[in-house]
Design a protein around this nucleic acid. Sequence first.
DNA 1: AGTAATAATTGATCCAGATCAAGTCGCCCT
DNA 2: AGGGCGACTTGATCTGGATCAATTATTACT
Lengths: 251, 251
Amino acid sequence: MQATPQISQNKKADSCADCPIQHRAVCAYCEKTELLMLEAMKSYKTYNAGETIIMAGDEMEFVGSVVTGVASLSQTMEDGRRQMVGLLLPSDFVGRPGREYAAFDVEATTSVTLCKFARRPFEKMLEQTPRLRERMLEMALDELDAAREWMLLLGRKTAREKISSLLMIIAKRQNTLVQIEQASNLKFELSLTREAMADYLGLTLETVSRQINALKKDGVISLEKKRHVVVKDVNRLLNETGDDADGGYFT
Amino acid sequence: MQATPQISQNKKADSCADCPIQHRAVCAYCEKTELLMLEAMKSYKTYNAGETIIMAGDEMEFVGSVVTGVASLSQTMEDGRRQMVGLLLPSDFVGRPGREYAAFDVEATTSVTLCKFARRPFEKMLEQTPRLRERMLEMALDELDAAREWMLLLGRKTAREKISSLLMIIAKRQNTLVQIEQASNLKFELSLTREAMADYLGLTLETVSRQINALKKDGVISLEKKRHVVVKDVNRLLNETGDDADGGYFT
DNA sequence: AGTAATAATTGATCCAGATCAAGTCGCCCT
DNA sequence: AGGGCGACTTGATCTGGATCAATTATTACT
């Protein structure tokens, strides 16, 4: 039963073009008074690729969301083993309201612009604003779903399935449903190093490299540059992920 | 730096003894009117060990929470590979408000009693009740933290570390902080089969069996019955998990 | 252009955990 | 008591991905 690739939650769809705050948490929350409060509170900051934004244990002075670029949330064991536990793309939220000290490392994978709010005022506003809290709940639940898919990937998928899944995940988040359905030739920028991919997938960078080249040799993808992927047949790639054909949620 | 084992979030602490609704989502929410509404809505149901409570794809008629027993949330691939993605102990919530069809399988691991609310009315109540929404957000964020710890386990820990971590997780959730600190001889019921443990940890049941017996042979634990564990020295076990000594969150 | 630094590939070997295959234990049932 | 079934253990072997070790692109900097 081979269905058309479906995109479950395209977060882009949630943003409203006329809202000056370009991120999901507060974007749909376009009511005048609070919007102005948020406007007054926010500030932008840009980090360079590779820069550490927050280290586990740091005091959390702010929360915010990714406006442009890619950041990662990860955990490191004493002996250096690393596991990425969150991939933060534009519209994703950073920080946990009510949390004093960071539990995970946040790093800029590419150059990243963050829209920041001082944590305390944001928390106060969260208390006063049911609509915003509702939005945060929705986001947390979406992330939880994503984390659970990710757990299946980490626990049970083969290296090849892991790589294919990652490619699909990134393709989905960077392109709209329409683009993917039409795409006999889907291209996208894979803005992660082999090492970052390995940390995402629970593999070594050597295995990542080998599997990407295997997919290439088998004609599933081709590479224009090391980090620019061309998918010839999306369904072919989807088959390699090990997921159900119609994958994704039922909402 | 060997610290005393810390327990980050003991969910038991959140329940209020005089609240007739014995679960976390609504428990702290003891305001008369809505409490009565919830009272009127709720119904209990008990499932036998091994019974399927919900299958992925089913229509979700209810949400609710675990009152007694242990249930699991899991995902299955077409070829039968299974990964547990949630372990549901008393006070844990089942179902996602707003979700029409189940995304995961829910199964009773032991005999389980669920306190159920019809989904629609619960959702309506959630809309009207900011305090309940706040509670749900907090729970979702806790689960997300747990999922991220779990991802580190799945992606980077060795089989022995995985088993040790699981034992610590269960010990923590079944005992209070005080009990654990004092415990030179911590006992607990491990209410999972070897297979369920394997599904939790991304291992095979044979490996689970071998590692448990290795921990026993090395004197880290002993077994009174196959599923009744005695931990002689909690710090010794904690060392085997690969986690930081003071592990857990900073709130 | 040349050189250093970083990212990626590729090969050879190894080993933790999977797989396959018998057992054994404990428990319910008549 | 015995038999049957599910849960668990234990052993032998295999293998996917890790590890170790060079190269070979890329990119960034003078």
